[in-house]
């Protein structure tokens, strides 16, 4: 089984659910099978939110929650201290944190931890702290699970009705993709 599972941690309003959806669409454009789904808890701005994605070469039948993700993407670094973002994460699993700190600062042992300043890139390029789509650039660069091309197509589709923001997101994605590959 080549099934890969991704858990995205965000705060209500950051767009973690949209991240997972765009990721699933991107995997589809890469010719893979995918699934994206949220966990709906309290729908309140700022509350911790989780969204999930599955990517595989084969058709995905599994419909349980994601218990042992291969990747964890953290859109807001304060969540690292608020909850156990490593819960169930596979040994040597990949953690990507939106932060201007260093990976060691978070004290997460037994995992591959990367910190990218997604907020800074978003502010520079988009002009607003929209990190959810930009973060996927970092994810693509570090995980290799989706291509940047596919990601661009997926963003184009998702932002069909807001092409300007779509284009800015694509730019932010490309920049973070590059940065991620440098860190790798």
């Amino acid at each position: 089984m080549d099934l890969k599972e991704i858990r995205i941690h965000g705060r209500g309003g950051q767009g973690a659910v949209t991240s997972s959806q765009v990721l699933a669409i991107a995997a589809f454009f890469d010719g893979k099978k995918s699934q994206a789904f949220p966990y709906f808890g309290v729908e309140r701005t700022g509350a911790p939110v989780e969204a999930f994605a599955r990517i595989s070469k084969e058709k995905i039948f599994l419909r349980q929650h994601v218990y042992e993700p291969d990747f964890v993407l953290v859109l807001d670094s304060s969540l690292v201290h608020a909850l156990d973002i490593t819960k169930g994460l596979k040994k040597n699993g990949l953690i990507i944190i939106n932060s201007n700190k260093k990976p060691l600062d978070f004290g997460l042992k037994g995992f591959k931890v990367y910190c990218l300043d997604i907020t800074k890139t978003a502010l520079e390029i988009i002009g607003k702290p929209f990190v959810n789509i930009a973060a996927l650039g970092a994810f693509a660069g570090l995980s290799g699970e989706v291509s940047l091309d596919a990601l661009n197509k997926a963003i184009g589709q998702r932002f069909e009705n807001n092409a300007r923001i779509g284009e800015l997101n694509k730019k932010a994605c490309a920049k973070l993709f590059e940065e991620a590959q440098k860190q790798k």
Binding site: S20, Q21, A24, I25, F28, K33, S34, Q35, A36, F37, P38, F40, I60, R63
Partner: peptide, 10 residues
């Protein structure tokens, strides 16, 4: 509900 209604897939 949710387990399917809110799932994105091909």
């Amino acid at each position: 509900g949710f387990s399917l209604t809110h799932v994105f897939e091909e």
